[in-house]
Computed example of a mutant assay.
Amino acid sequence: MKFRNTQNDLTVTAICGTTCCLLSFDMDVNKTKGLLGFAIEREDKTEREKYFLKGFKYFEETGSRTDNGQLFTSFEQPIQSFLWEDFTVKEKHIN
């Protein structure tokens, strides 16, 4: 399935399968001044959970790695890319 939404000069496109989702962010380069990244919050209505997605990248000034597999929430350490692959999608969950 493919979804696209534009709000406040940001367009997000999601291409989703049964176990993964590709998110693409598009924004006018003139609007990105001061942009550090994106926080992505997931709401799972099936399991009644709400949480920010996690990633491996972090800003050295505000995060510290204790081991190589450590994950950081995108709220604390924004996703620093205009393309994001989420392999934690749960099959047959209500969107």
Results as ranks from 00 to 15, higher is better:
Ser74Val: 03
Lys33Val: 12
His93Asn: 14
Val29Pro: 11
Gly37Thr: 06
Thr11Phe: 10
Thr18Cys: 04
Lys31Pro: 02
Ala14His: 06
Phe56Gln: 05
Asp44Gly: 04
Glu47Thr: 10
Asp86Thr: 06
Leu10Gly: 05
Tyr51Ala: 05
Arg42Lys: 15
Thr18Phe: 12
Asp86Tyr: 15
Leu23Asp: 00
Glu41Cys: 14
Asp26Arg: 08
Val29Thr: 12
Thr88Asp: 12
Ile94Val: 08
Thr73Gln: 02
Asp86Ser: 08
Leu36Asp: 10
Glu43His: 13
Asp67Thr: 04
Asp9Glu: 11
Phe3Val: 09
Phe52Gly: 00
Trp84Thr: 07
Ser81Asp: 09
Phe38Tyr: 15
Thr73Trp: 01
Phe25Asp: 07
Ile94Phe: 13
Ser64Gln: 12
Gly17Val: 06
Leu36Lys: 13
Thr32Phe: 00
Glu85Met: 14
Ile79Phe: 05
Asn30Lys: 13
Met1Gly: 13
Phe25Tyr: 11
Leu83Lys: 15
Phe75Cys: 11
Cys20Asp: 12
Arg65Thr: 04
Leu53Trp: 07
Phe59His: 10
Gly17Cys: 08
Glu49Tyr: 09
Gly34Gln: 03
Phe72Lys: 01
Asn30Asp: 13
Ile40Glu: 03
Leu36Thr: 11
Lys92Phe: 09
Ile94Pro: 00
Glu91Asp: 14
Cys21Phe: 05
Ala14Thr: 08
Glu49Ile: 05
Thr11Trp: 11
Asn68Glu: 13
Phe75Thr: 03
Cys20Pro: 00
Gly55Asp: 06
Asp28Glu: 11
Gly37Val: 06
Glu85Tyr: 15
Asp28Met: 03
Gly69Asn: 14
Gly63Met: 01
Phe59Gly: 08
Thr66Glu: 12
Val29Ser: 14
Glu60Gly: 04
Ser24Asp: 05
Lys45Cys: 09
Phe38Thr: 07
Thr18Val: 06
Asn5Thr: 09
Tyr58Met: 01
Ser74Phe: 01
Pro78Ile: 04
Gly34Pro: 00
Lys54Glu: 14
Ser24Ile: 12
Gln7Lys: 11
Ile79Met: 03
Thr11Val: 03
Arg42His: 08
Asn30Pro: 00
Asp67Met: 07
Thr6Glu: 12
Phe56Gly: 07
Asp67His: 15
Ala14Pro: 00
Thr46Arg: 05
Gln80Gly: 12
Thr13Gly: 04
Thr32Asp: 02
Ile15Tyr: 07
Leu83Ile: 14
Ile94Cys: 08
Gly17Gln: 10
Leu35Thr: 02
Glu91Cys: 11
Ser81Pro: 05
Met1Trp: 07
Gln80Asn: 14
Lys90Ala: 11
Thr32Lys: 13
Ile79Arg: 01
Leu22Trp: 08
Thr46Trp: 04
Glu61Lys: 14
Leu23Arg: 01
Tyr58Ala: 02
Gln7Val: 08
Gly63His: 02
Cys16Asn: 06
Gln70Thr: 01
Ser81Lys: 04
Phe72Ser: 00
Asn95Lys: 07
Gln70Arg: 02
Ile15Asp: 13
Gly69Met: 04
Phe56Pro: 01
Leu35Gln: 05
Phe82Gln: 07
Phe3Tyr: 10
Thr46Pro: 06
Glu49Trp: 08
Leu35Ala: 01
Lys2Phe: 01
Glu91Gly: 06
Leu23Asn: 00
Leu10Asp: 10
